[in-house]
């Protein structure tokens, strides 16, 4: 009898507290607005097109490109090895394993910066790590990697080296094919590969 009163006087007030507080007041590992603002100001989430091109050419297994545009746009053109997570599906359960992980480097991209950055901000706010944004999006990708413009010859050597690198990756990643982006491309002809006939050993014998 007395025991029941003691237990009741402990558990019932606790129950009242639990009933009164809202659910999920604390979500662990969430960023505060201040922390997020700091990251946004620093812009650490941006990865340049050159870095991505380099990783693609080297077939870096840690890179995971994520296209946040619509499925129709994704089917029209996408970067090699990328998956399509339309911005509206970002929070669906299906993709949580992709976005919230500590192994791969996720790089969001869209046509410009905006949608990809929105995806990054939402996922960062949820506390997800390893998510980045392709600087300038596909438009800048097309401009710099697919159809690089030759720098003026007066520029410094590193500019020219950059151009050479871009031209090389452009060939490796099938550049020049993005006519849709506007510039009259196709000025990067693929090097013709001369096929040499292999010398065969003389067959036959006795």
């Amino acid at each position: 009898m007395k025991m029941r009163l003691i237990i009741a006087s402990v558990l019932i007030p606790l129950g009242i507290i639990i009933a009164a507080v809202p659910e999920n007041t604390t979500k662990p590992f969430r960023l505060t607005a201040g922390e997020l603002l700091e990251e946004v100001c620093e812009g650490t989430q941006f990865v340049s097109t050159d870095e991505i091109a380099d990783m693609l050419v080297q077939k870096d297994p840690s890179l995971q490109l994520i296209d946040v545009r619509t499925q129709a746009e994704f089917e029209k053109y996408s970067l090699p090895g990328s998956v399509n997570i339309p911005l509206s599906d970002l929070l669906s359960e299906e993709w949580s394993d992709f976005l919230d992980q500590g192994v791969k480097m996720n790089v969001f991209y869209s046509n410009g910066n905006l949608k990809a950055n929105e995806a990054w901000m939402i996922s960062r706010q949820l506390g997800f790590e390893n998510n980045y944004v392709l600087q300038g999006g596909l438009n800048y990708w097309a401009e710099t990697i697919m159809n690089p413009q030759a720098p003026k010859s007066v520029l410094a050597d590193d500019e020219i080296a950059k151009y050479d690198f871009r031209k090389g990756t452009s060939m490796a990643l099938g550049g020049g094919s993005m006519v849709a982006i506007g510039s009259k491309a196709n000025n990067t002809p693929k090097p013709k590969i001369k096929k040499r006939k292999k010398k065969k050993k003389v067959a036959g014998g006795c």
């Binding site: 558990l11 019932i12 639990i18 009933a19």
Partner: peptide, 8 residues
């Protein structure tokens, strides 16, 4: 929480 209180 309300269900929990009811349960108690």
């Amino acid at each position: 929480g309300v269900f929990a209180l009811g349960m108690i």
